[in-house]
Amino acid sequence: MKFWYTARKKYSIHFVLVFLFIFCTFANPNFLSVNNMTNISTQLAVTTILAFGATMLIISGMLDLSAGSVLALSGVFAVSVYKSTGSMILAILAGILTGVVCNVINAVMISTFKTPPFIATLAMMAVARGVALYFTQGQNILQLGDFVKIGQGTLGIIPIPVIFLIAFGILTWYLLNHTRFGRSLYAVGGNEEAAVASGINVHKIKYTAFIINGIFVGIAGVLFMARVNAGLPNGAINYEFTALTASIVGGTSFSGGIGTAGGTLVGAFIVGFLDNIMNLNGVNSYLQQIIRGGIIALAVIYDIRTKGRRTKQILGNSEKKNEQKQTN
């Protein structure tokens, strides 16, 4: 009884994913096909890597609305570097560098000039998209040659983007659980003033968080362009929202201080499965948007409600425990 109670509390979101998976399997025979699974996971790789970056920022009390635009800019730069040098390594580095530069600018705006993250990254969203379009003159870059391998190739039976997804998932988990940076991130998001008073270098934490986000966004840009086999300056529009949705559905709290890598992964797959099953069953695409919005609303309501209950639950326990100790 108690076991189930804790299990339900802690893993409720995992149950949702399992139920959804079973539901999808019955709702459409093609869902479980190798082809479809490969498809979902390669698609999800890009948004989930974005979501990992987003999760770290939200935990620290910030957010990044520029992710989709910066992704496009990084991808476009990476593609052009590849076309002019033929080097995959240089292309990836160009993508990462672009992501990092944009995000350092975000960090300067937010941490040094104290602009609210929403506004600062909104500005970056417009600027990065503008630069991408200006640089390409609005033209898609085609014929990428071997560049597509990183997005469409496989290692054994595993698509290469999925390997990236796993690697970045582990990296995020590691950063959040096993580094001083991760611990400080939770503290900064949970109560910034207390973090300062505890001797945490909040500036450094914020800059680091954005730089890491920049690396994630840059790589996502490379994977995205390789998968679609084109440099699309107008690609990945609204991807930042998909990433935010995944993060929130996965239990990251918008008030800061709470969130996990595992939760975000589960959140991303819930969103991905839903999108996929709606596409497979030919749900009207306008309707899909409505459903997606509804899910965000539900996830946030759920987050707020369980948090309230959780606090009361713990409070109850602690009082009980105190009582016991006092009677001893």
């Binding site: 400080s184 503290a187 949970g190 109560n191 207390a194 008073a197």
Partner: peptide
């Protein structure tokens, strides 16, 4: 205001100044 990180555990709060 300057003491606790309310949403984190008592353990994390305790070690916050001694992460090394």
């Amino acid at each position: 205001r300057y003491g606790i990180i309310p949403v984190r555990s008592v353990m994390e709060n305790t070690t916050l100044s001694s992460l090394h």
